[in-house]
Amino acid sequence: MGQMMSRLRSPAWTWAILAVLWAGIAYESYALYRASRDNRLIAAPAGIEIGDSTALELIFAKAYDTARNGDRQEALRLYGTLLHRGDERFRARVRYNLGTLYLRDAAELWNAKGVLEYVRVNTLVASAKENLREALRLQPDHWNARYNLEYAYRITPPPKEKPKADFQGSKGSVFATLPSTPGGGP
């Protein structure tokens, strides 16, 4: 123990520790520089260029800004690239925004056209529900996700009536409608 302490007190070790600390300062300073640069871009997302190494929060900011400017398709595409990336909290935020985007489209269509746009409303609401449910699975205390999901259920169009059977045949027995033994069978 004493030997180890005296070794630790030797100048070589001291300089080594000092070098590690300086390397840490250099690394953290670079991280701070990057964070500050990214934060400036988040504040003005128009300047964000999406590439392979773009930070997740920057893609999120770009998607959010694109949706606000009315390009919902591009926003959906950008959010879609983030679905399986980042930590749980980040993914919950992505799912919530994606679900809310679908829900807003569905609500506009439902309130304007009602059941006339049954298929589109149903598809949009189903996507909204799926994403909001996933957001709640990832972050159960997300109250806005709960609220929007409940609204999605409220505007879910009622299921369509089943079309009537149009069988016109007149068979004497139900067995007569069953397929016969295939040809060549035993």
């Binding site: 953290e28 991280a31 701070l32 964070a35 500050s36 990214d38 934060n39 988040i42 504040a43 997302p45 930070a55 929060e57 999120f60 900011a61 959010y64 949706a67 935020r93 919530y96 925004n97 809310t100 985007l101 829900l103 807003r104 609500a107 439902w110 309130n111 806005n144 609220y147 929007n148 609204y151 409220r154 505007i155």
Partner: peptide, 20 residues
């Protein structure tokens, strides 16, 4: 249904610099 206000999307969060 028409009067229900959908909750807004979440705005991006600035990257935390405090830990650095």
């Amino acid at each position: 249904d028409e009067a229900v206000a959908i909750r807004d999307a979440l705005s991006p969060e600035p990257i935390a610099t405090a830990p650095h």
